[in-house]
Design a binder for these strands. Structure first.
Length: 638
RNA sequence: GCCGGAGUAGCUCAGCUGGCAGAGCGAUUCCUUCGUAAGGAAUAGGUCGAGGGUUCAAAUCCCUCCUCCGGCUCCA
């Protein structure tokens, strides 16, 4: 039989060959280095037998997947350490994740101190460098071993359905596991336990609550340190911490959960973002609309939200009539469209609204600005003819990239196609998906396809923002919708004088302002580009003697449209500069007797660059240009 | 909603084996008037998340609730 190698070449191997055999066929060196393999993209142990036509990849300690194998072994090291210290602990499952591994256990209570103790035990196991041995047993033997462990028995019943199952054994300790694993515990170079939390058996809240221990592992101590350092940085950049420090927003107890208040500095940033979005919208032919926060539930019944989204909606009783706070803006916009009749010549109609919506998320989900009950979407809805889809999507993507490039973010692009359950005919899905694909292809965008991940009402393109620390956040989306026009019976009159159904396109450039704000705070670490900075320039008089001149400088800046303040506290100049840096100002200008006499300023930027004897007008002109061009960094001094 | 952790001055946090509520920063006042990352002193500031209980006595122990944090599930 033949297997397919990553370079596309085919290799014929005897039937019954394992991944390791295939590696030896390729070369003895590779055979010896084989840790595991991938069959048709799935990570398997090196003893796994391959089937005819399988796509085979060999995993060695040089592969990206090696880390997954190593972390899986780290999970075993954890489990062994746990059972050494807490023999009563029952093991369930312990897989690797993107960042490390976790193990769900039960019959044991663990706190932070326990984790540190288990970690020491893990270090001892790693140090001892036990061989990790693969053992094949019969199902009966396995069931007997797990006579007291209902979870493992369930796995044996449901997943490990074959007659034989594999165990991995180290130092006499063993665990049911399909592998793959590294050769010895010593190969797990450095491991750390990170969190202890709760999880349901198989993620179902009807099931038992288990104790989940999260950890991570790397081949070397240095790699682990690097990872922990990144985590530390992420914590330092936490938007809740920076939001407090910069007085951007608060979510006080009295206002209720997930209902943030924006303070003047925070509102300034949001205002700049909405000005930018509004500008883009106008340039791309959108018309602004406005809808109230509250509608009769009749509307939500018509849109389908009442049935499908009921649990997440705030429903109010008003004089025996039911009203609902809007969880989405689209029904309102569809209703506006429906207030008059349209010709095919009128399309596309492009509506937009910075619309506040309310979603009653589960309480435990609320988190800073990333998950809230009330948030604002820079929401656009387009009503288009089927033949206009491509051009409109192109235009939306162009807008999205203007946002992305202006802010210096990176994006991931993914096309999500028709799911199993969907509305709309085959033909419209096919042409719609085809048009989306064409837009992405012709634009030269690098994108992934996520088959079946589209909404039930239409395919979509999702964008993920990648921030300065390499984390990816949900970003803009463009979604086609064949359902809403149907529900609202939207029509336009075609060239043929017949009624036709428009297609609706939902799009957002930022997603929600709240979440986008969070991404920007963390991406820039609070060091906003000058155009977004709440305070763009602070004027620092050397002493009170030049306070008067400082105010004149400030006025000149303010008149030019720059957000500037004077530091008038009775502090030393060093103290004022220190505070200015702590406040993450793009620019400070320092004025003393010399400057007051010459009508100049001394400029200092957030990178600690400084330049003296700067003509005030020249500085103001530069700031205005920088502001208008929305540059990401202060550039006066280079 | 569920599991675990936490809530003390405007902010960051100490006090928590029960016995007069603390520090630093910030604020106010005074001194200092300063040239590129913290000048000095004094003063004010608290229903110790809310309610109930135990006790001679509760920030501290117990119960209920609220809110936040880390997860589970979900999503912008």
């Amino acid at each position: 039989m033949t297997v397919v190698l990553p370079d596309g070449s085919e290799l014929s191997v005897p039937s019954g060959s394992t991944v390791e055999d295939v590696a030896y066929e390729i070369g003895p060196g590779l055979g010896r280095d084989t840790v595991a393999g991938k069959i048709d993209g799935e990570l398997v142990e090196r003893h796994a037998t391959v089937h005819d036509g399988a796509r085979i990849e060999i995993v060695t300690d040089q592969s990206d997947e090696y880390l997954q194998v190593l972390r899986h072994s780290a999970a075993h090291v954890f489990a062994q350490a746990l059972q050494r210290l807490f023999p009563e602990a029952t093991l369930t499952i312990g897989p690797y994740t993107d960042e490390g591994f976790y193990y769900d256990v039960t019959d044991v209570d663990l706190d932070e101190d326990d984790l540190r103790e288990i970690e020491s035990e893990m270090d001892a196991i790693i140090e001892a460098d036990y061989d990790i041995e693969r053992v094949v047993r019969s199902r009966e033997d396995a069931l007997e071993i797990y006579a007291d462990n209902e979870f493992k028995r369930e796995i044996l019943d449901e997943e490990a359905a074959g007659e034989e199952v594999t165990f991995y054994k180290q130092d006499g300790w063993q665990d049911l596991c399909r592998g793959p694993h590294v050769e010895s515990t010593g190969e797990v170079g450095a491991a750390k336990l990170l969190e202890v939390s709760a999880a349901y058996w198989r993620g179902d809240e009807e099931n038992e609550t288990l104790t989940r221990v999260y950890g991570t592992a790397f081949a070397s101590e240095a790699d682990l340190e690097e990872y922990l350092d990144l985590r530390e940085q992420a914590k330092e950049r936490d938007h809740r911490k920076i939001g407090q420090e910069m007085n951007l927003f608060s979510i006080p107890t009295v206002t209720g959960p997930g209902l943030p208040l924006y303070h003047p500095p925070g509102k300034t940033v949001l205002r700049e973002l909405s000005d930018f979005a509004n500008e883009l919208n106008r340039e791309h032919g959108y018309e602004e609309v406005e809808t109230p926060h509250l509608f009769r539930t009749e509307l939500w019944k018509q849109s389908g939200h009442y049935d499908n989204y009921h649990d997440d909606m705030f429903i109010l009783d008003v004089n025996d009539e039911e009203y609902g706070l809007k969880p989405m803006n689209c029904p309102g916009h569809a209703t506006i469209f429906d207030q008059q009749s349209w010709s095919y010549r009128d399309l596309p109609k492009r509506y937009f609204e910075n619309g506040k919506v309310y979603r009653k998320e589960q309480r435990g989900e609320l988190s800073g600005l990333s998950r809230v009950w009330s948030f604002t979407i820079d929401d656009g809805h387009l009503f288009v003819r089927p033949d206009q889809i491509r051009a409109e999507i192109e235009s939306v993507i162009e807008m999205i990239f203007e946002v992305v490039e202006t802010l210096g973010l990176e994006v991931d692009v993914a096309l999500a196609t028709r799911p199993e359950k969907s509305v709309g005919g085959d033909e419209i899905w096919e042409t719609a998906e085809e048009q989306l694909r064409e837009v992405l292809e012709s634009g030269g965008y690098d994108y992934d396809i996520e088959p079946g991940d589209g909404a039930f009402y239409g395919p979509k393109i999702d964008f993920g923002f990648e921030d300065a620390l390499g984390r990816v956040w949900d970003g803009p989306t463009v979604q086609l919708d064949f359902n809403m026009p149907e529900r609202f019976e939207l029509t336009y009159t075609g060239e043929d004088n017949e009624e036709h159904r428009p297609v609706m396109i939902h799009r957002a450039l930022y997603g929600s302002y709240e979440r986008f704000f969070m991404v920007l705070i963390e991406h820039f670490d609070g060091n906003f580009p000058p155009w977004l900075a709440p305070e763009q320039v602070r004027v620092l008089p050397i002493s009170d003697a030049t306070l008067g001149y400082a105010h004149r400088v400030r006025n000149a800046l303010t008149e030019a449209g720059i957000r500037a303040e004077v530091e008038d506290r009775d502090w030393t100049i060093g103290r004022k500069i220190r505070q200015g840096h702590d406040d993450r100002l793009p620019y400070m200008v320092i004025v003393g007797d010399d400057e007051a006499e010459a009508g100049t300023v001394s400029v200092r930027d957030r990178f600690e660059n400084q330049q003296s004897d700067v003509d005030l007008d020249e500085f103001v002109d530069h700031l205005v240009t920088e502001y208008e061009q929305r540059r990401t960094e202060p550039t006066f001094i280079h």
